[in-house]
Computed example of a mutant assay.
Amino acid sequence: MNQLPVRHIIDNVSFDLQEQHDFTWLQSLGTVFCVFDQQDSGNISFGIENNGIKHFVKYAGCRPLAFSGEPIDAISRLSTAIPLYKTLKHPYLINLINHFEPNNGYAAIFEWFKGECLHSHWLFAGKAKQTHPESPFYKFKQLSVEKRLQALNTIYEFHKFVESQGYVAVDFYDGSILYDFSTDVTKICDIDFYRPAPSVNDMGENFWGARRFKSPEEFILGAPIDAKTNVFTMGAIAFGLLGGEMDHSFSKWEANKSLYEVALRAVSKERERRYITVSEFKKAWDSKK
């Protein structure tokens, strides 16, 4: 029989976990004003304000309701990700401020960015993501093509930088994109699974990532995970933000035909047909805007 959820209340925010957990360490950081507790990664995150300054705190060590793994594994993944945020520090990436080990868990503190996540599945699941007027993804899709191209440029510039630093993006999808509708600023979050390049698929079909954006090799055990994989991801994101996501037909595409052809080549199932690098892809993309 499934165990009943355990309600936790911190300041004026409440959330449920699979079991009791001590969060008294949060008090020293400020006042909790929001919680993100629906992740299946094993992390739970908080918005915290102290003297008018807001921070985003990601924590591993408890058992969120959507998490089926072991907290020790979530702790290991989060602590291992910390060097990534330092090595790949960039104006388009959320900024890591501090990290430490409260009790038997692990916490990472980031600057607060008031953008909305384009895959807010905890608020707008299923069809609501595409149709609800308050869904960040729906609102984003109502923006002009020019503004969406600007957001894609941010994504591509960051991943060109990632490539230049000798890394590959893993588990990048629309849930890794934050957009501030008041300033039209885009930021990347959650690069926890990025890896040194080249890498290999060591998990088979269940390799990290959203199926909607994964390349064919991200389903095959032992397959290379490299620049060409990321080219596919960049093309898939273009179809997600400008087209019909997994439907790559031109009828769903909202930008010009030349950009469509660049994106279509990027998502070729055959690796040899794709652009060789993200840098080459972006050069072709920029020439067609």
Rank of each mutant, 00 (worst) to 15 (best):
C62E: 01
A66E: 14
F36K: 12
L26P: 00
N43M: 01
F33P: 10
E70R: 14
F23A: 00
Y59K: 08
T80V: 13
Q39H: 15
H21M: 02
N50M: 06
R63A: 06
V32L: 07
I53L: 13
Q39N: 13
L26E: 01
W25G: 10
K54I: 08
G30R: 05
C34W: 15
A66H: 05
K58N: 08
S41E: 14
F46M: 10
N50H: 14
T31L: 07
F46C: 06
E19T: 03
P71Q: 10
I44E: 03
K54Y: 07
H21Q: 00
A60E: 15
G30P: 04
D16R: 03
L26C: 11
D16I: 05
F15C: 04
S28K: 14
S76P: 06
Q27I: 06
L78W: 04
S76N: 13
Q39I: 03
G52F: 11
S68P: 04
I72Q: 10
S14W: 11
E19N: 05
G69W: 04
T24A: 05
D40Q: 13
F36E: 09
C34F: 12
N50T: 14
G69Y: 01
L65W: 12
T31Q: 11
L17E: 00
L17K: 00
N50V: 02
I72N: 10
F33D: 09
